[in-house]
Each structure stands twice: as structure tokens, then as C-alpha cells.
């Protein structure tokens, strides 16, 4: 049995909807869910003011409609499943530590910001700062998995400490900027200045890329570890091919202005 929230009155200013979190709805009926408080600008409002709610909160939570102005959905969630049928706003899954969020549409900026665990999947595109740290924050994502089938914007995985981000399309500039560790896979094209300031970790692309002068070429080889990662992503529905799996990758070590233990792996074309 799932709980469905259907957008009926689109908000004019963003809705701070941390409350839309599967565990928050456990055991609640539609009427109780509608009464849950949300912040609408600087006003207190209720979920029911914006959403028509049906069903029981003891399984999946579904959002239907254009939620582009609904922010912080799934923030801090620890378990459960959240499915959004439509576009969704910023900070989706911020700081979540467990559970799954699926977006059948596009996501706004700061997707999975400072995530600790769990999984997010976006069938469309996402904005900037996917899986990143909050501005001013030292460390970004600490665990979990973010998959975006479409394209992503700039600073994907900025400040990431641990985890996996995979992009089916292209990424913008500064992919993996200040990466501490973890893995960012972009099946499409990387933008400019990937890996700037990376300490360790891996940035992988199935296309060639221009690499910063502070990166040095190491070798071209078949990294076994990548086979595990790509097989996993294929299993998750990304269009990983056998050529990706068994191909040779050029390894660039950097960023030399930092620890120089990071790598950018570019599939030999």
C-alpha cells in the first residue's frame, strides 16, 4: 500500500518539504499526512494545502506532478522508498542515510547534497552540485549512490569523501572538484577542469577529455576494479557496454597541487 501525494496547488515560492520523508508517514493515513507541517516561504502551511493525498503510509511514498519548487524532499531519510513522478526541486535527499529515491523526471541543484548513504536515481537530468558539499562545507557526500541517466551540471561530486556517482549523459565543468575519494563515472563527456583539487578517488569517462596541466599521464591499461564498478552500474540500468567493461583506459594521476593520488580514467577511443 503506498501513499500518493499529487500536486494540486503549485507553490509560488519554494516549499521546504523535509517532512516528505517515507518514515515520517509510517502508519499514517491520508488525513494525518495532509496535516503535516511544511514551511512555505516564511509561513507555516500543511502538506494538504498543496497536495491531494491518498492511501496509507506503510509502503512506498509517491509524489505526482511538477514538484520543481518543492525542496528538501527526502532530506535526512533513513529508510523506505520515495518515488517522484515528475520533476523535483533542489536538495532532494539532502543528508539522507538510507532508503531509495527514484525521480522519473529531472532533479534540481544539489541533488543528494552531503548524503551519507542510501540510493538516488534520476531518469532525466540533474542540476549543478550533484552529490556535493554545501557551500562552505568541507566535505560532501560520505556514502551512498547517485545515478543520473541524463546530463548533470557543474561541480558534480564536489568535495566527495566516499560513495559512487554515475552519469549516463554528460557532465558539466569541475566534475569531481576537490574530490577526497570515491568514484564519479560519466559515460558521456566530461566538461572542463575535471578533478581540480582532487586528493584521491577516481573520475572515469567513456570519452576523451582535456585534462588539467597538473595531471600526469601514467599508462593505458585495463583496470580490473573498473570492471566491478561498471558491471554494477550496468546492473543498475546504465548503458554500459562490453567495450566499456573490457576496454583500455588512459590513467592520469593528479591533482598535483594536492595529494596527487587521484586518477582520471579515460576510455581509449
Amino acid at each position: 500500500m503506498s501513499l500518493t501525494l499529487t500536486m494540486k496547488n503549485a507553490p509560488e515560492v519554494p516549499l521546504e518539504a523535509d517532512a516528505i520523508c517515507p518514515e515520517r508517514f509510517e502508519g499514517l493515513g491520508a488525513a494525518q499526512a495532509a496535516a503535516i507541517a511544511v514551511l512555505y516561504g516564511n509561513r507555516r502551511a500543511q502538506l494538504g494545502d498543496f497536495f491531494g493525498i491518498e492511501g496509507q503510509g506503510d509502503g512506498e511514498v509517491r509524489l505526482v506532478g511538477d514538484c520543481r519548487r518543492v525542496k528538501r524532499i527526502g532530506a535526512g531519510m533513513t529508510r523506505g522508498r520515495l518515488v517522484i513522478d515528475g520533476d523535483v526541486g533542489m536538495h532532494l535527499g539532502a543528508g539522507m542515510s538510507g532508503g531509495t529515491i527514484v525521480v522519473k523526471g529531472n532533479a534540481g541543484d544539489l541533488l543528494g547534497v552531503e548524503m551519507l548513504g542510501g540510493a538516488i536515481e534520476v531518469t532525466g537530468n540533474a542540476g549543478h552540485l550533484v552529490g556535493s558539499a554545501i557551500r562552505g562545507g568541507a566535505v560532501g557526500v560520505r556514502g551512498g549512490e547517485i545515478i543520473v541517466h541524463g546530463n548533470v551540471g557543474n561541480e558534480t561530486g564536489s568535495g566527495m569523501r566516499r560513495g559512487l556517482i554515475a552519469v549516463g549523459g554528460n557532465s558539466g565543468d569541475f566534475t569531481g572538484v576537490n574530490l577526497f575519494a570515491g568514484t564519479v563515472v560519466v559515460l558521456g563527456e566530461l566538461g572542463w577542469r575535471s578533478g581540480a583539487g582532487m586528493k584521491r578517488g577516481s573520475i572515469v569517462s567513456a570519452r576523451s577529455a582535456d585534462v588539467l596541466p597538473t595531471f600526469s599521464y601514467a599508462c593505458t591499461y585495463r583496470p580490473v576494479m573498473l570492471r566491478l564498478v561498471l558491471a554494477h552500474l550496468r546492473h543498475r540500468g546504465l548503458p554500459v557496454t562490453d567495450a566499456h567493461l573490457s576496454g583500455r583506459y588512459a590513467r592520469w594521476s593528479g591533482d598535483a597541487v594536492e595529494l596527487n593520488r587521484g586518477e582520471i580514467l579515460l576510455l581509449e577511443q
Binding site: 566516499r162 559512487l164 575519494a181 568514484t183 576494479m225 564498478v229 554494477h232 593520488r261
Partner: peptide
């Protein structure tokens, strides 16, 4: 000191640099 680790799906692997590439 040149080793690196990867955490994938709850399993941690080590990549030990070797002359033929890496030992995972």
C-alpha cells in the same frame, strides 16, 4: 602508500599497484 581503495555496494576493495597493472 600507492594503494587505493574503492567501496562499492558495501564491499571494500584494495587496488595494489603492480607491474602488470593492479592487484585487486
Amino acid at each position: 602508500g600507492f594503494q587505493a581503495s574503492k567501496l562499492l555496494d558495501g564491499r571494500r576493495f584494495w587496488r595494489v599497484p603492480a607491474m602488470d597493472g593492479e592487484f585487486v
